[in-house]
Design a protein around this nucleic acid. Structure first.
Lengths: 325, 325
DNA sequence: TGAGGGTGAGAAAACCTTTTCTCTAGGACG
DNA sequence: CGTCCTAGAGAAAAGGTTTTCTCACCCTCA
């Protein structure tokens, strides 16, 4: 113990924590010695008395980590500087597993829990309200009186449609996922509100195959072909782009395409690479971290839903405004 | 405190932990009361005295989580039943960040650290040897005297090549990633050893584009065309399959293709879906969990490298043996 | 009947901090 | 010269467990 190097345990503690009263000289001396011997206060003992463990839990049902991973990165980024570590608990959609994980976290007196998921309109299969610790819902549905963070899908969709319009598209079609998803409806609504031309929305599943098929539907029927396609996610967009290429339709010259999600592995590998909407999940994670920290420190945080803006990542499938010559 | 319901604190503790001496009746009574009042022993206090925090840290530099996520799932799956929670620390490749995370974990007295990564031949940018806690290296390079877990890439590659041979391929080419990767060399060696026909290995980068280009190289030159292609990973395989389809070559009828990684999002969405080698990372994670648990409990674990077998996931790009009629 | 042994259970120490309280000097002030 | 105040630092309690020690009691055996 660093106290061996001059002072009592209590004085040492106060010196290191900047509390208590003592001469500046004593304080400095203690700090110096602590540094020299590499003193590490035991977080368990500290937590026992301060009631703060500098630990939070992240609960998610997103198996692929497509959404959770960026969120996690943001949280961690925000919190590690405050000495807070994050428990990651992947509960598939199993209430039992969720319960076990939550119990384990509670046992460890986490300072807070962040619930995260893969859908904005589904709750995790576990009830987190009424827990003794604060909870933030990030990219998953929370209770009405909870603190919820989500992406602004309408704004993101507007971004996408505007990009197509700016690229000169006159007839834009929206190919999206199942209508049962709230985000699908929101994006479609924003599409309808932003689009100048005749609106047309095709619903299917979240797969490349559906993108293909949708293109087939559009091109095999008579009548006008679209010159711009706004896709509900990047997988669909990839299917669409592949489908178009196979038909000899050039992207973006003949038809411009915009995706949604900015899932690198899909968006960047598409030929041509996808222009797509990024939900800024990392930023969302940072914000979640900031909020849970505030709440765990007892600061009051306003409940309700916060929508964080999306941004557009311009690659080659839609270039938007031509650069001024 | 549950002790209010009958006995002293010490007796209660002993009753719940199955230690100490007391009548069976007392023990049962305490347990019953504890259950009724939902007694939760404080893990901090317990950890303070037992020197076990029931907490381990997972350190990874795998940003996409492609490898880490299954490993993590396995670890968690194995450990949650023992009441152990997992800190996930994503350090890009930043030694400074790694240091901070490791310090945070050490402060929290983790019972062990599992180091994980995205390459079998690269160490994490932080030195974990000489730490007071046990360390297991899972899917990343560890020190020679460390406990290391990895996939058996040679065996996996043999599986792939055999599948092609069984499908009747006479001329199999191996299209893989950069020669600087140890796994690339191992897979290539296994390919050469298993393949009957003339060996041909093409090295490039880990991308679909390279798969395309490799197909172009093979088909645009004169001479025999391969009838089987073993790819270094699924992204290359996807590029290859797409390239073949665009040339009107049928998969698997004309050319059978096998990938590596079983990265669902790529393998399952390819047309046709990829037959590919799965490294069983979840199992690897479970094993890592089992080992770190053993080590944290003081049980001796033999150091060295353990290779875990891969398995073949048969989809449609190579069907292997035709089913007996 | 008394000694010795075994059984059941509680007391208390220990784990490592933080925090509050107490104590000692020394200085200012009356 | 005595009193009061303050600065500086240590003593001790508290936090919730586990674990070792101790104690009381009853039973057995001589």
């Amino acid at each position: 113990m660093a106290a061996l190097a001059g002072v009592s345990i209590s004085t040492a503690s106060k010196a290191l924590n900047g509390s208590g009263r003592m001469s500046e000289e004593t304080r400095e001396r203690v700090k110096k010695v602590a540094l020299e011997v590499g003193f590490r206060p035991n977080a368990l003992a500290r937590g026992l008395i301060t009631k703060r463990s500098f630990t939070i839990g992240l609960l998610t049902n997103d198996t692929y980590g497509r959404f959770t991973l960026p969120v996690m990165a943001g949280i961690s980024e925000e919190l590690v500087g405050h000495g807070v570590s994050v428990f990651l608990c992947a509960i598939e959609d199993d209430p039992e597993r969720a319960r076990v994980h939550v119990d384990a976290m509670l046992d460890k007196s986490v300072d807070g829990i962040i619930a995260s998921g893969k859908r904005l309109d589904r709750q995790l299969p576990v009830d987190l309200s009424g827990l003794a610790v604060p909870v933030v819902y990030a990219f998953t549905k929370g209770p009405v009186d909870g603190v919820t963070l989500r992406s602004d899908d309408e704004q993101g969709a507007r971004l996408a449609v505007r990009c197509l319009i700016d690229a000169g598209c006159r007839r834009i079609v929206h190919i999206s996922g199942p209508k049962t998803f709230q985000s699908v409806r929101e994006r479609a609504d924003a599409y309808r509100a932003t689009n100048d031309g005749p609106p047309e929305v095709l619903h299917g599943v979240w797969s490349e195959a559906w993108g293909h098929e949708a293109v087939a539907q559009l091109w095999d029927r008579g009548g006008d072909k679209p010159d711009g396609i706004f896709c509900g996610n990047d997988q669909i967009a990839r299917g669409v782009v592949d489908g178009l290429r196979e038909r000899g339709v050039r992207v973006p010259e003949d038809v411009a395409v915009v995706g949604f999600d900015n899932w690198e592995i899909v968006a960047a590998q598409t030929r041509p690479p996808l222009t797509t909407v990024d939900m800024n999940l990392r930023t969302l994670g940072r914000e979640a971290g900031r909020l849970i920290l505030a709440m765990s420190e007892g600061r009051e945080v306003q409940s309700g839903i916060r929508k964080l803006p999306c941004s557009l990542v311009v690659r080659q499938s839609c270039r938007g405004l031509e650069p001024p010559v």
